[in-house]
């Protein structure tokens, strides 16, 4: 008697488990969606929440965004775990295409990076528009600086700027140069907590909800230009890629429609991204 009870219990459990696991299978099997490997800045700024419904309404294609750092997004796409790559690290993107993982890279839009800092401004750089000069001052005053340290697009751009300034931050790591190894939002949370300067893309900063008394210290240097690109993952290399659906997304984003949708996205009245796909591409 007890055995039958137990067996039926176990059976019911297994059935329920299989059922619930099975229920999620159709979601995976439905084919009218694509996966876009993208970055935290596009997601956290709310751009995708604005953009994707417009595209889905028009085409019926569902877009699933995996938002990670640019470095990880590129690696995921190189594993074939995505149909479209939408990131901001041009050299790495070109390498991705050259290795055969991507079909073609298109410019989509840009915004710019800014350095944000505490009102006390320990390095005395507030109001500057010369990034190299500002970074040199930060290094010489040993004012704390919080870096992503995660091989993301922002991190790559930041390291390039340190290099331009001729400063070896590796030596200062753990001292005034602090690598959080986290996403943009987490680094902003950490950096503002420790009174450090932080380099962030403007879009994330505008949409960020935990600014405290932080303000933009350095902006307007054209070396802080932040270009986004979009790439269709190559089905010849990764046969499970949904080329057709992916291509229609890429095409739409760089079309006049998509570009104006990007331009129309505003937070607090400020435009966050500036479309710059070459016309007619």
């Amino acid at each position: 008697m007890f055995r039958r009870q137990f067996l039926s219990l176990a059976l019911a459990g297994t059935v329920a488990a299989t059922l619930s696991a099975g229920l999620s299978a159709p979601v995976a099997a439905a084919d009218d969606f694509i996966i876009v490997q993208s970055t935290t800045s596009t997601q956290n700024s709310g751009l995708f929440d604005h953009l994707l419904p417009i595209f889905t309404d028009k085409t019926g294609i569902e877009v699933r965004v995996v938002a990670v750092g640019t470095g990880q997004a590129i690696k995921n796409a190189a594993n074939g775990d995505g149909d479209v790559l939408f990131v901001h690290a041009r050299p790495a993107e070109e390498k991705f295409v050259a290795a055969g993982h991507g079909v073609k890279r298109h410019d989509v839009m840009y915004n710019d990076f800014v350095i944000v800092g505490p009102p006390s401004d320990p390095a005395g750089i507030a109001g500057s528009s010369d990034i190299v000069n500002a970074l040199t001052k930060i290094a010489s005053t040993k004012a704390p600086f919080a870096s992503r340290g995660d091989d993301s697009g922002t991190n790559k751009a930041e390291l390039r700027l340190w290099k331009d300034a001729g400063i070896d931050v590796g030596e200062a790591s753990g001292d005034w140069y602090r690598e959080t190894g986290s996403g943009m939002g987490a680094t902003l949370n950490t950096g503002t907590g420790m009174g450090a300067y932080i380099m962030t893309d403007r879009a994330t900063w505008i949409a960020f909800g935990n600014k405290g008394d932080y303000e933009i210290a350095v902006e307007g240097d054209n070396r802080m230009f932040n270009q986004y690109g979009i790439i269709l993952v190559n089905a010849e290399k990764h046969p499970n890629v949904k080329s057709e659906l992916g291509k229609s997304f890429v095409d739409w984003v760089i079309s006049e429609d998509g570009q104006s949708a990007i331009a129309n996205y505003k937070v607090d009245g400020q435009q966050l991204f500036f479309p710059n796909a070459p016309a007619g591409s």
């Binding site: 956290n44 943009m184 939002g185 987490a186 902003l188 949370n189 909800g209 935990n210 600014k211």
Partner: peptide, 11 residues
């Protein structure tokens, strides 16, 4: 995790 990274700590 997402809302934290957006700085929406209250949410």
């Amino acid at each position: 995790a997402l809302e934290t990274s957006k700085g929406n700590l209250e949410l």
